[in-house]
């Protein structure tokens, strides 16, 4: 892991399966890093608002993920719960550079302090 300009290198894009996710542990709590079918990446809280299910184990479809425990669906872009339920999980800035995944340090530090 290296830090550069406030972005933390958390691994290679290819370490995250296409239409899949991996877990990142942080002091702000567990973060799920998603890779969509279109090769976009998103980072959100790993914890479902309903019963705390691990979202990184959910099925990734379009820009959404379905919690493996009780099928709550979240937008990966906004963190909003989809459908009839309401609520929002934290989202974190993440980008791809030269095939590496970079997570914004400040956002995590802020969540940590909060």
């Amino acid at each position: 892991m290296t830090r550069d300009m406030g972005w933390i290198d958390i691994g290679a894009l290819d370490d995250v399966p296409l239409r899949g996710a991996r877990l990142v542990k942080s002091r702000a709590g567990c973060i799920a890093v998603f890779r969509t079918g279109e090769n976009e990446v998103f980072a959100t809280s790993n914890t479902c608002l309903h019963r705390g299910g691990p979202l990184s184990e959910g099925i990734v479809h379009d820009r959404k993920v379905t919690c493996p425990l009780h099928n709550h669906v979240y937008s990966l872009e906004t963190g909003e719960v989809q459908g009839a339920d309401s609520g929002r999980i934290a989202t974190y800035p993440i980008r791809i550079e030269n095939g590496r995944l970079l997570l914004e340090a400040a956002a995590i530090a802020k969540a940590d302090a909060a």
């Binding site: 691994g11 370490d15 399966p17 877990l23 990142v24």
Partner: peptide
């Protein structure tokens, strides 16, 4: 096996 581990563990980093 690696797939079953977290991608990264940032809790081990020293606080800035």
């Amino acid at each position: 096996k690696r797939r079953y581990l977290p991608l990264a563990d940032l809790t081990l980093e020293a606080a800035e």
